[in-house]
Simulated scan of single mutants.
Amino acid sequence: MSTLIWPSIAPDELRAQEDATQQREIEWLLVSLQESLHSLKSGLDDCADLLAPKEPGSTLVLSSLRSEHLKGFITRVGTRIVKGEINLRLASLPPPKGQTSYKLSISSSPTAPTLVLAQLTTTRTLINACLDVVDATRWTGDAGNADFISGQLRLLHENIQEAKSALKGCTEEQKTWYEDPVDAKAFSPPLPANVSFHLSVSEAAVLLNVRTLETVHNHTGTNTPLSQPVAGSLTGLSIRERLVGALGGNRPVFHDEAHDVFSFKGQEVRVRDKVRVESQDPSLLAAMAKLGALERSVGLWRRGLEVVMGTEEEEEEEEG
């Protein structure tokens, strides 16, 4: 079945009519996008409000699974950790005399260094950038210029994607624990030199990794693991280690970093003990869900405008 125009139109006139129709579609879409940008601003404001530094903040419970290795809490206000107490029970970190655990307390002194979650700072910066783009698009730009609006939508889409990625914890800019150690004076008393305290965000949850460290001595070599299995040892422990365990001594602890060497504060170190604890943060979960919804909406707007403009294939080639 075919569709014919009757009476027939000359090819030049047909192309002119097609161009005029396309232009009317673009104009209609650009007008409707102004309303969509208004709703986008509202959603971005909600995200910014969820990450804003409002008292009393979010208090998150920290507890290691199926063990007493780590118990405590932290309080987050915006991007900062303003309060916290962590009790550790690790063989490599003996508690003070008369105590059953080693206590880490985040200092409340106004002169103490601040513990900041860099990923939340990145997310807030990107959300604010999106709000600026929306305002520029609605009030100072050429709302009738399809190329301008398409470029603004692309910028919005990329910024929202990066903001969501920061909350998911999968950005390339995120520093590792040994690259970005916390200031020992952020704690009262100061954090012990052989302890690494690292906070980050993963899947909109606050992730805490506490590590006890030991210096790598020159006579051991930097490639020697903490415990080398010997031939005939089915358990992976040497005879010496099994004897230590049988006599009630500290058994070696195995984790994903046990055999690695890291450069930490100018020293080569190994991780003796490692405790990893996640705590779900309702505000961060809500912000990530909203950013996901906004990402999908802006993606649809981008694609719709590109289809009407006839630039969809060009955009796909550039992204590919």
Results as ranks from 00 to 15, higher is better:
Lys290Ile: 09
Pro53Glu: 08
Asp142Leu: 12
Asn159Val: 00
Gly249Ala: 07
Gly248Met: 11
Lys168His: 08
Asp281Leu: 01
Gly43Cys: 04
Arg296Met: 09
Leu37Met: 13
Lys103Pro: 01
Thr224Asn: 09
Ser107Glu: 10
His217Thr: 11
Ala118Trp: 05
Gln161Met: 05
Leu300Asn: 12
His255Phe: 06
Leu37Asp: 02
Pro53Asn: 07
Glu158Leu: 10
Gly320His: 09
Pro95Gln: 05
Asp135Gln: 11
Ala204Glu: 01
Gly78Glu: 02
Leu294Asn: 04
Ala286Val: 06
Arg270Trp: 04
Arg89Lys: 15
Asp147Trp: 01
Arg124Asp: 06
Thr215Glu: 15
Leu90Thr: 06
Gln161Leu: 08
Lys274Ser: 12
Gln22Val: 03
Val298Tyr: 03
Asp12Pro: 00
Arg240Asn: 05
Ser238Cys: 11
Val77Pro: 01
Val134Ile: 15
Ser36Lys: 11
Lys164Arg: 14
Asn209Ile: 08
Arg80Trp: 00
Cys47Asn: 01
Val275Phe: 07
Ala146Val: 12
Asp19Tyr: 02
Asp273Trp: 04
Lys54Thr: 12
Ser202Trp: 03
Ser36Arg: 14
Arg242Leu: 14
Pro113Phe: 03
Leu291Ser: 02
Glu173Cys: 01
Asp132Gln: 13
Val134Leu: 06
Leu4Ala: 10
Met309Glu: 15
Ser58Gln: 13
Thr125Phe: 08
Ile239Val: 07
Glu18Ser: 06
Ala52Thr: 02
Gly72Trp: 02
Leu4Arg: 11
Arg242Trp: 01
Trp28Cys: 03
Lys54Ala: 10
Arg24His: 10
Arg240Thr: 07
Pro229Gly: 04
Val253Glu: 09
